[in-house]
Amino acid sequence: MLRLENVTKRYKTGDVALKNVSLEIPEGQVIALIGPSGAGKSTLIRCVNRLVEPTEGTIWLGDTELTALSPGDLRKARRRMGMIFQEYALVERLTVMENVLSGRLGYVGFWQAWFRKFPKKDVREAYRLLDRVGLMHMADKRADELSGGQRQRVGICRALIQDPDLLLVDEPTASLDPKTSRQIMRLINELCKERGLAAIINIHDVHLAQMYSQRIVGLKAGELVFDGPPDGLVPEVLTEIYGEEDWEATIEDVDEDEEEASK
């Protein structure tokens, strides 16, 4: 459904963030993108919705060549890709409801957006999503009154209300505590299953990556160095991606955590 062909990103400073990355993601697959800081994970998902313009290569979403779209068509295509951010990136001075509804901006006109007159079904859907993530009662609160985990839930709602085919998730747990991190990851995972969404999740935590994805892609210095199932992440592979370290402890816990998480 999403296909990256030889994508390269070279920043103006000369830094090469992505080198010739090719990747294909079938419908409904949740993949975790792992790799050390600066490996180009963030750049990769930003290239997909062209918040960052790739220097070379093409990206296809279904039959649409994203890399060739005009600004107007790009906006239409972006509606099909929900994005969830590392620091939540909620507009802090807007209410929770406005933040969720902002996911529908691609579907409404300027004045509708200005007067907050969103279609009834959008408002209903917003309430439904907020209810789904347990924040129904927070709709009128300002986003900056929420805790980190709550903000990320709102961020998830904003992405989902777009009714996307694909989720781009950038370090969703980086600013959260371990427990909340798991809850958020589980939530994203469940929602993807419910809706049959494909997702690319950038994640630092190898552990969480293994727990909550069907496939793992490893990036190192802008190059794809691993692509396989979660249990293919043997110590040798991790060493390849991150460098030398004692990896046994990291991997062993997985099953235990899975049980705990399912309780």
Partner: peptide
């Protein structure tokens, strides 16, 4: 202003004018 907040609005497929009123103006 915090540019990521604007980016987040942009990522939803908002037009430049909408980006202004949702991402920039509240900030």
């Amino acid at each position: 202003i915090n540019q990521t907040q604007v980016e987040a609005i942009e990522a939803t497929g908002a037009s430049p004018a909408q980006k202004m009123i949702y991402g920039v103006l509240p900030q």
